Amino acid sequence: MIVKRTGRRVAFAAVPAAVFLTLGLSGPALAEGGKAYQIDLAQLNASGSSGTVMLSLKGNQLTVQIESEGMVPGQPSAQHLHGSTKGHDFHCPDATDDTDGDGVLSNTEATHDYGDINISLTTAGDTKATSGLAVERMPVADKQGKISYKRTIPVGQDVVDHIKDLHVVQHGIDRNKNNKYDFEGAGKSELDPKLPQEATAPTNCGEVKGAAVGSIPVGGIETGGGSPQRAVVPVTVRDGAAITVLAVVAGAVAVARKRAAAVATGRGTTGSGA
Score class of each variant (00 low, 15 high):
residue 139 P to V: 05
residue 176 N to V: 14
residue 141 A to S: 03
residue 164 K to D: 13
residue 170 Q to A: 09
residue 118 N to K: 13
residue 168 V to M: 04
residue 95 A to S: 14
residue 154 P to K: 10
residue 130 T to I: 15
residue 103 G to S: 09
residue 168 V to F: 09
residue 170 Q to G: 11
residue 102 D to C: 06
residue 178 N to L: 05
residue 161 D to I: 06
residue 100 D to H: 05
residue 140 V to D: 01
residue 164 K to A: 10
residue 150 K to C: 12
residue 130 T to R: 10
residue 123 T to H: 00
residue 131 S to Y: 13
residue 112 H to M: 04
residue 100 D to K: 05
residue 174 D to G: 02
residue 100 D to V: 14
residue 111 T to Q: 12
residue 130 T to Y: 04
residue 95 A to W: 08
residue 98 D to H: 04
residue 148 S to F: 03
residue 165 D to H: 12
residue 141 A to K: 00
residue 148 S to V: 00
residue 129 A to D: 11
residue 123 T to L: 05
residue 158 D to W: 02
residue 104 V to N: 09
residue 156 G to H: 06
residue 97 D to I: 01
residue 111 T to H: 11
residue 113 D to F: 06
residue 166 L to N: 07
residue 105 L to D: 03
residue 172 G to W: 07
residue 101 G to R: 09
residue 123 T to S: 06
residue 166 L to E: 06
residue 168 V to T: 02
residue 107 N to A: 15
residue 113 D to W: 08
residue 128 K to D: 14
residue 178 N to I: 03
residue 175 R to I: 15
residue 100 D to T: 13
residue 165 D to P: 07
residue 131 S to W: 12
residue 176 N to T: 13
residue 132 G to Y: 04
residue 103 G to M: 09
residue 106 S to L: 07
residue 168 V to N: 00
residue 108 T to L: 12
residue 176 N to M: 12
residue 102 D to G: 07
residue 170 Q to I: 12
residue 166 L to D: 07
residue 128 K to A: 13
residue 110 A to S: 13
residue 113 D to S: 14
residue 178 N to T: 03
residue 156 G to D: 14
residue 140 V to N: 01
residue 107 N to E: 14
residue 178 N to S: 07
residue 172 G to N: 11
residue 131 S to V: 06
residue 138 M to Q: 13
residue 171 H to Y: 14
residue 130 T to G: 15
residue 111 T to A: 15
residue 179 N to D: 05
residue 167 H to E: 09
residue 117 I to T: 15
residue 148 S to T: 01
residue 129 A to M: 10
residue 116 D to G: 13
residue 127 T to W: 00
residue 139 P to G: 04
residue 108 T to G: 05
residue 110 A to R: 09
residue 179 N to S: 04
residue 140 V to C: 01
residue 98 D to C: 03
residue 151 R to M: 08
residue 95 A to M: 08
residue 122 T to L: 13
residue 147 I to A: 03
residue 146 K to R: 10
residue 157 Q to Y: 02
residue 163 I to S: 02
residue 173 I to V: 11
residue 175 R to T: 15
residue 160 V to S: 01
residue 126 D to Q: 08
residue 165 D to I: 03
residue 107 N to R: 10
residue 142 D to A: 00
residue 120 S to W: 07
residue 129 A to I: 10
residue 97 D to K: 11
residue 148 S to K: 04
residue 108 T to F: 04
residue 119 I to S: 06
residue 111 T to S: 13
residue 157 Q to L: 04
residue 97 D to V: 05
residue 107 N to K: 08
residue 126 D to P: 10
residue 159 V to W: 00
residue 151 R to P: 04
residue 144 Q to D: 05
residue 101 G to N: 12
residue 154 P to R: 07
residue 105 L to F: 06
residue 99 T to M: 03
residue 156 G to I: 11
residue 95 A to E: 13
residue 145 G to R: 02
residue 115 G to V: 06
residue 154 P to I: 07
residue 105 L to V: 12
residue 134 A to K: 09
residue 149 Y to A: 04
residue 112 H to K: 13
residue 175 R to S: 05
residue 97 D to Q: 10
residue 164 K to S: 10
residue 161 D to M: 04
residue 156 G to V: 12
residue 117 I to A: 12
residue 148 S to Y: 02
residue 153 I to D: 00
residue 118 N to P: 02
residue 178 N to Q: 04
residue 149 Y to K: 03
residue 119 I to T: 11
residue 142 D to C: 01
residue 129 A to V: 12
